[in-house]
Amino acid sequence: MEHDNKEATLETLQDIRSIMDRSARFLSLSGWSGIWAGVVALVGSYIAYGWMQQPDYKYMRASLSDGSLSYFDPFVFRIILLALSVFIIAFIGGYYFTYKKAKSQGLKLWNGASRQMLMQLFFPLLAGGIFTMFFIYYGSGIFVAPACLVFYGLALVGASKYTLSDIRYLGMLEVALGCFNLFFPGHGLYFWAAGFGLLHILYGAIMWNKYDK
C-alpha cells in the first residue's frame, strides 16, 4: 500500500517536472541544425577567403577616412551578399532539422517557449546587424567579425533561458572569441569561421549526442 503511494507520487512529480520543462523551454532544437549551420558557415568563409586572395581586395585594409559611401563598393557588396546567403541557408536548414525533430516528438514548433526564444534571439541580432552595417559604412572592417561574434553570443545567452540550457555556454564562447579577435585585427575571417563554423559543428555534435541519439 505504502509502496503504491510512493510510486504514484513519484509519477506525479515526474509529470509536473516534464510539463514545467516543456512549457517553459523549447526543447526540440536539433543538433543537426547546429552542424548544418557550422558547415554552411565554413563553406561561406572558404568562398570569402578565395575572393580576398584576388587583387581587388584592397579596400578592407584601406585606412580609415571620412566614412564616405565608397566603402560600399561592389566587392564589399559581394561579401555582404555572401554573408546574407550564408545566414539564410543556415537558417532554413536549421529550421528544417528542428522542425523534423519537433514533429517526431509530437510537439508543436510554435509555442510560448519558442516565441520567447526567438524574441530573445532576434533583438540582439538586429542590434548587431545595425552595428555591423555601420562598421562597414565607416570603413572599420576590422570590427565586423568581432561585432558579429559578440552580438550573436549575447543573443544565444539570452535565448538559452527558453531552450536547451547548454546553448548558454556556446553563447559565452562566441562572446569570448569575438573579444579575443580584437587583439588580432584583420584576421576576422578566421575568427568568424571558428565561431560560426567550428563551434557550431562542435556544439551540434555534442547536442546530437546528448539529446537526439
Binding site: T12, D15, I16, R17, I19, M20, S23, A24, G112
Partner: peptide, 10 residues
C-alpha cells in the same frame, strides 16, 4: 496538476 505546473513557470 498539469495546468498548474505550466502556469508556475510561465
Amino acid at each position: 496538476i498539469g495546468i498548474m505546473s505550466a502556469l508556475m513557470v510561465n
